[in-house]
Amino acid sequence: MRFVRGVDTRDFSNEWSLLKSFAVSQRSVSIWPRLLLPAVAVAVALAVWWVLSSTGVFPGTLFPSPADVWAGMSEELRTGRLFDDIVASLFRVVVGFGLGVLLGVPCGLVLGHNPLARATFLPGVNFFRSLSPLAWLGFAILWFGIGDVSSMFLIFMATFFPMVLATLAAVAGIPSIYFRVARDSDLSGIELLRRVTLPAIMPQLVTAFRVTAGIAWVVVVAAEMNGAQEGLGFAIIDARNALSPDLLVANMVVIGLVGVVLDQILARLSRIPSLRWGFER
């Protein structure tokens, strides 16, 4: 028998190797298909699109051809307008979404912990969550003018309430055993929040971040219907006005791509070691 300081380690070494093999296998199995399969899917979709438009099954008046879209996109790239549009939209989304998180999470914590506050405000939160940000468009312009601030306001309105609800649900779902352990260890106040409550809801928050950031990015098109002069959403509306479906589709492509990248970045949060527990088992 092998003993380490009097402890039989056979069962553990067994598990250890299991653990390692799991980590390795996860990586080696997924890396190639993860990059290759989507690329193949995109290529097939492009080919189908190209065939449909070049054979005239889908005439240019109904949907632009890949070549037109590519021309439109390179024109936008060349003039630098595309870059400015991306920056403008990202800036609005990041600030609006950031404020939604920064204010939504604390509100969710309060509502999650305090039944009285929950009873008081939950119907209101659900009420506002049901309103499309488009409904606020007129007031956004009246209150915040045209441009960045009113777009940010609209994105904030679209993200704050879902964030409150997600946090609330996460807090309400924390197993009471964690608070028992915390009390046994004399954790309270800010320390309890920092070391127990927040980490306990963090995995769910990360998922909520991804979902809400997705909402924010979807809303950007609507949020830039406020007389904004730049931004991908504005470019969509403007391309429609300008009767240029090629630019329209070019901007749609960019919005979709940026959305994918944003989600990938946020998905990386789930790789933080102290959050892994929420994404495994």
């Binding site: 009246l142 003018g145 406020n226 007389g227 002069q229 403007d238």
Partner: peptide, 15 residues
């Protein structure tokens, strides 16, 4: 200053 629809023009003018 290019706008895309009249309701937005009205709101901007009111504001």
């Amino acid at each position: 200053m290019r706008f895309t629809d009249f309701p937005t023009v009205v709101d901007a003018l009111k504001a």
